[in-house]
């Protein structure tokens, strides 16, 4: 588990992380969402040892994070701006990683290379952006590091590969108990990958929750009655958002779906539809509850 407390980092006079607190549980996929410049990459870089923190504490499995090789063996970081050595092929790069990481599984890496149909002897420089990302992901997964950080890595990967990687991530968590931390400025990119989400805003974690909890506790209904009705009729419910267009209302509710469904049916609605909420919508409504305008954050 990574426990971050009061983390602060400034670039010159600009405070990028301001007293950030967050907890990343072991064996999960943690999504770090935030606008460009929110501090996602900075947070990842500090945890992985690229940057030094100004203040605060980072505990990894109960121990304070230090510039120590043993602790760093637990991390692998795939930055947004990828770097490969000039003229290096996948084969060379895998060898490099093998020499760097004690638990690097080169057979696993070659298997992935084969599955993703990458040429191990071709220079990485000549790869497309997507292929470079795939290469970086392969290297990272093969390290078997306890904590894998992917900085906007899955953005723009095609759905087939994405699905494959998603499965690979899941099996890594299952087999090795790894923890994956993925950042993105696009919620849709994280929706189908992450277990937990943290929203980074102005250098701090504004909101943090499990996606399943969010999805099961928040739902959207479309409802209509013979009679005229208003938001007042739903005072027994936790209404996050209420919009009425003529005789049909669209309501975002937070709470136990089973209980709410029973109660709503008791009200004899003409129409009652439960609609799925996208993660983005969940976030928008949650932010509104917290008093933030979600659109201004992105």
């Amino acid at each position: 588990m990574i426990k971050i407390t009061g983390l602060t980092k400034s670039f010159g006079t600009k405070k990028v992380l301001d007293n950030l607190n967050c907890t990343i549980k072991t064996g999960s996929i943690y999504g770090l969402i935030g606008a460009n410049g929110a501090g996602k990459s900075t947070l990842m870089r500090i945890v992985t040892g690229v940057f030094k923190k100004d203040a605060g504490s980072i505990e990894v499995d109960g121990k304070e994070l230090e510039d120590d090789e043993k602790i760093k063996q637990k991390f692998v970081y795939v930055p947004d701006d990828l770097f490969f050595f000039k003229n290096y092929t996948i084969k060379d790069t895998l060898k490099f990683y093998k020499n760097m990481y004690k638990d690097f599984d080169i057979d696993y890496a070659y298997e992935m290379v084969k599955t993703l149909n990458l040429n191990e002897l071709q220079r990485i420089e000549s790869f497309s952006k997507g292929m470079k990302r795939q290469t970086a992901i392969i290297c990272a997964l093969a390290t078997n590091a306890e904590y894998m950080f992917f900085d906007e890595t899955f953005d723009g990967i095609d759905p087939v590969v994405r699905n494959y990687i998603k499965k690979a991530l899941a099996s890594k968590i299952e087999e090795k108990g790894c923890t994956i931390i993925v950042s993105s400025h696009n919620l849709r990119e994280l929706e189908d990958i992450c277990d937990n989400l943290g929203l980074l805003y102005k250098g701090g974690i504004l909101f943090e929750s499990e996606i399943n909890t969010l999805k099961t506790n928040m739902f959207k209904i479309q409802i209509s009655f013979k009679r005229d009705f208003s938001e007042e009729d739903f005072k027994d419910f936790k209404v996050l958002n209420f919009k009425k267009t003529e005789s049909v209302a669209t309501i975002i509710l937070e709470g136990n779906r089973g209980e709410y469904e029973e109660k709503l049916n008791d009200m004899n609605p003409l129409i009652l539809d439960f609609l799925p909420l996208t993660l983005e919508e969940i976030f928008i409504y949650q932010m509104e509850v917290l008093g933030y305008e979600f659109n201004q954050m992105f």
């Binding site: 992985t48 940057f51 090789e69 760093k72 930055p79 770097f83 990481y101």
Partner: peptide
């Protein structure tokens, strides 16, 4: 390469301490 912007991430996150 240690001091270049994009490679600093790469080498800085490797399991190598700065003194190493």
């Amino acid at each position: 390469y240690v001091y270049k912007k994009n490679s600093a991430d790469f080498i800085g996150s490797m399991p190598l301490s700065r003194k190493t």
